[in-house]
Write a protein that binds this DNA or RNA. Structure first.
Lengths: 148, 148
DNA sequence: TGCGATTAAATCGTGTGCGATATATCTTGT
DNA sequence: ACAAGATATATCGCACACGATTTAATCGCA
C-alpha cells in the first residue's frame, strides 16, 4: 500500500534540510567574522541601509523583537552596532552601525562569491529557484490568511 | 556602485525565509497533534520504519544525539515512543512507537494534503523544486568536503 | 587476552525562534 | 486635557540546533 507520509516526498523537508546545510556551509565563513548566520543577516541588512528601527529590521527578516532584541544586544556587545531610543518616538530603538560594524563589511564582501562558487549555478537558475521559493511562501501565506 | 550584499539576492535567505513560513504554516496543524515540526519529522520517520536507533533516525533527519536525545525524551513523555537500550549492543537506544504513537498516524494523514492544497503546485513542479534543492545541498556538501 | 581506538548516546553551554505577556510611549476621540 | 486603544520594544519560558565534551560499550589487533 502506498504511503504518502514519506519524508523524502516532503517539500518542507527539502527546505528544512537545505536550510541546515546552508547554515553548516556558512558557519566557518562567518566564524571568521565572529558572527552567527542570523547576526550576519542583520549586518547585511544594516550594510544596505543603516540607522533603522528594530521593527524595520524585523520586517525585512521576518523576525520580531523577542528574537531580535537579544540578538541586537549581542551585536552591541561585539561593538558592531549601537542601540539608542529614538528622541522623536521613545518607543522605538534605532540600530546604527559603529565604525567597527562598517569596517566588517569589507571582510564580509567575499562571502557571497564563496557560496556562488560552491553552488555553481547560473544567475538564471538561481533567480528561478528564488522565484519558486517566493511563490511557495506566497501560497502558504495566502492560505494562512484565508483560514485565519 | 552595485552592492552584491543584498538580502533579496541571497538564495540562502530565500531558503531561510521559506523554512520559517513552512514552520508557521505547519504549527497550527501540528498543534492539533500535540507535536512541534521536528517532532513531527521524527514521527513520520518512525511511521515509515519503526524500531530504529537514535543514530539511524539522526542519519535520516541530519540531526545528532545532542538534538535528538532531548526531543525523543519529550516524545517519550508524551507516550508516543519508548526508548530502550539494545540488548545486543548496549550503546544503542532503540526507539519504538507505542500504540498511542501508531494511532497518531491516522490523525496525521490529512496533513500532507493540506500543504499540497496550499501550494497548488503540480507533482512535476514539486519534484523539480525538490531536485533543485537537493542539488544545492549536494554542491554545498561537496565543497565542504573538498575544503575540509 | 587485553588495551587502545572507535562508536553511540548523553550532557553542557550558547544562540536562535516564537507564543504569550509586560512595560512604556504615542495616538485618537471626545 | 485625558482615558482608551494602539504601537514598539523587552521579558519569559520552552523547544530546537549544534560545537564540544563525557560516559559507556564494543571492536580490533597485537
Amino acid at each position: 500500500m502506498p504511503d504518502n507520509l514519506q519524508l523524502d516526498q516532503f517539500l518542507c523537508f527539502s527546505i528544512y534540510s537545505a536550510e541546515h546545510t546552508f547554515n553548516e556551509f556558512y558557519r566557518p565563513l562567518l566564524a571568521e567574522l565572529g558572527l552567527t548566520y542570523p547576526q550576519y543577516l542583520v549586518m547585511v541588512s544594516l550594510w544596505s541601509r543603516d540607522d533603522r528601527t528594530v521593527r524595520e529590521i524585523g520586517a525585512e527578516l521576518s523576525l520580531e523583537s523577542n528574537t531580535l532584541t537579544p540578538l541586537l544586544k549581542r551585536l552591541e556587545a561585539l561593538g558592531l552596532v549601537s542601540r539608542t531610543r529614538d528622541a522623536k518616538d521613545e518607543r522605538q530603538v534605532r540600530i546604527r552601525l559603529t565604525e567597527k560594524g562598517r569596517q566588517l563589511k569589507k571582510r564580509a564582501e567575499p562571502v557571497p562569491a564563496c557560496v556562488a562558487d560552491a553552488l555553481g549555478l547560473s544567475g538564471e537558475e538561481l533567480e528561478d529557484l528564488r522565484q519558486k521559493l517566493l511563490l511557495v511562501q506566497q501560497r502558504l501565506k495566502e492560505t494562512m490568511e484565508k483560514q485565519g
